[in-house]
Amino acid sequence: MWDDVFPIDQVQEIRTKTTVYLGAGAIKKIYDIAKDLKEKGVDNVLVVTGRSSYKKTGAWDHVEKALKEQGMGYAVYDKVTPNPTADSVDEATKMGKDLGANAVIAIGGGSPIDAAKSVAILLEYKDKTARDLYELSFVPQRAVPLVAINLTHGTGTEVDRFAVVSIPEKEYKPAIAYDCIYPMYSIDDPELMTGLSLDQTKYVSIDALNHVIEACTTKTANPFSILLAKETVRLIAKYLPKAVENPQDLRARYFLLYASMIAGVSFDNGLLHFTHALEHPLSAIKPELAHGLGLAMIVPAVVEAIYPASKDILDEVLEPITKGAEGAEEVAKTLEKWIFSVGVTSKLEDEGFKGEDIPKLVKLVRETPSLDGLVSLAPVEGTDEVIKKIYQRSLKPIA
């Protein structure tokens, strides 16, 4: 196959709404990016990141040097946690305001990038808070320039207009989607990802897999989202086992990263439905639950629910994983078996959820801003009974 010999150290410029630099060594593009920001009038930059990976990966060494070379002021907000909260976004925004930041650089996976997108908006709307933003009390049209340096191969947030932040006191985990938060530039460098833990490697890749299972079956799916979905599944099926076996396999990391990126473009076009809408309440209730793990636990039941309405597309897109399976239950079981085969074997009961929690979960799907909109895009009607059954079927292995 062509991907067996493709030169992964040839840094490619890939244009979506965002200009993405993809390839081993792409982090060095930050010097060109910093120069461009300076020429565009950026004086001070807020860096939004997690607690340690930005340093451990070596990304910060290049970013700091690039900012100093351009004479830019900067401050680092390094308190973003998985499933970032509105309070964290407000804290970072205050740091940016105090600095006079007129651009944001995110370094991390989905959580730091999503938090940074939120900060980029709030630096333009100085009278608003993260809760205003995520309870949809206003529609932003502007954000300061954003650069995303991606450290995981799963979310696709470095190429899309989405962001997710939790409101803890309400157990809400809403999503926003605005054109103003497409990153101006993104860096996808697989050399920054060889240190991902085994669990992170699995969870983030399963996140990308979920993106395309949904994006190719929504009511708004289009030929482009379906085309990208097919290639995403092929690459993840081929390369995730390789990365699990050898975390230092740079070719595997490269193509998982590329798969994640095109999955982000796929759902930026086709959008999402059940799996993400039903996962968000899980990790809102249990913020320690990895988003990708939550998705892995419920996606077989989602596929089972939507298969009658999306049989032809799912058979074609999932063929590298479910080849030979027939019928909704068998396809769902085969998908679940594949997820188990890469080492993700938890179901909802294993993570502390019980049958008596389901009414609350259904209620959160209905009440959390934005999630009902995702449910409405599913290829089958998202009634309370359908949602309830997906949760029930996800408590234990379908097989």
Rank of each mutant, 00 (worst) to 15 (best):
A221R: 11
S266D: 10
L377A: 05
E39L: 06
I390E: 13
E245Y: 14
K68I: 01
I121V: 09
L289K: 03
E329M: 11
K126V: 13
D199I: 15
V380I: 10
P84H: 06
I313Y: 02
D160K: 02
D372I: 03
V344R: 03
L37V: 11
T334M: 09
L122C: 03
L314D: 04
Y31C: 10
C180W: 09
G108M: 06
Q12H: 10
K17L: 14
H291Y: 08
A101T: 09
N83V: 11
E304T: 12
H276A: 11
E330Q: 09
D312L: 10
G154V: 14
G50M: 01
P223D: 10
G373Y: 04
A26D: 08
L196A: 10
K202A: 15
I176G: 11
F274Q: 03
D61K: 08
Y77N: 00
V344N: 07
F255I: 10
I306L: 07
Y178R: 07
V165Y: 00
V147W: 10
L198M: 15
H291N: 07
P281C: 06
H276T: 07
G100Q: 07
T383A: 14
I121A: 05
S266G: 13
P223T: 10
K117W: 04
I149A: 00
I262P: 01
G264E: 05
K173S: 08
D179F: 05
P300T: 13
L348I: 15
N83C: 11
L123Q: 02
A163K: 00
E381M: 14
K17P: 14
L122K: 01
E158V: 04
A59L: 09
S186Y: 08
V139K: 15
A116S: 06
S88A: 12
E367C: 05
R15M: 13
A328I: 12
E245T: 15
Y74W: 14
I167N: 06
K389F: 04
F267R: 06
I206L: 08
N222K: 14
A86F: 07
E288W: 05
Y258F: 12
L282P: 08
D114R: 05
L272S: 03
P174W: 01
N246D: 15
S186E: 10
L227D: 12
F6K: 07
T19D: 00
L133Y: 03
Y178W: 13
V5Y: 11
S346P: 13
N150L: 12
S310D: 05
F353S: 00
A101F: 03
F6W: 09
E319L: 07
T57Y: 00
G71A: 02
S260Y: 09
L151S: 02
E330R: 09
F162E: 07
T232Q: 03
A101D: 06
P84Y: 08
